[in-house]
């Protein structure tokens, strides 16, 4: 069972390898898209690396719920609706969506996810040693 520090270190390695960034760039506060330059295909690569590194399964859309963000039911005029925000919060309990909810423009969503969110996501999938 890994500790929180070990989880962060493994995620750091996965992001360095997947995104070609330096270790000092991968801080808990860094956003994956804005700060680390991740693009959509990188999320596939990151998910692969996390699965291998932690021996876990990450179903499609669990880390990055693209199905909600492209749904006409949950998106109107380029913004996530109230129902969509509820669905996002249900699906992403590891992420802090409060800032995004103030002006939920779909295009800004990718820039919200941080390294710390990713750590919380992995912590929810593995047993953590305190």
């Amino acid at each position: 069972m890994p500790t929180k520090d070990e989880i962060f270190e493994k995620i750091q390695v996965a992001l360095i390898d997947a995104l070609g960034v330096d270790d000092d760039e991968v801080t808990p506060e860094a956003t994956l898209v804005g700060d680390l330059g991740a693009e959509s295909i990188d999320f596939l690569d990151i998910v692969f690396r996390l699965e291998k590194s932690f021996d876990i399964k990450i179903p499609r859309g669990e880390l990055f719920p693209e199905d909600i963000l492209t749904s006409s039911e949950y998106v109107q005029d380029g913004k996530v609706t109230e129902n969509g925000l509820v669905e996002l919060r249900n699906r992403m309990p590891f992420a802090d969506l409060d800032d995004f909810a103030k002006n939920p423009v779909v295009q800004d969503f990718g820039n919200m996810l941080t390294v710390a969110d990713m750590c919380r996501f992995v912590e929810s999938k593995v047993e953590v040693t305190q």
Partner: peptide, 9 residues
């Protein structure tokens, strides 16, 4: 390394 629904590495 992997072959999945979305892609492969």
């Amino acid at each position: 390394e992997y072959i999945k629904e979305d892609g492969a590495r």
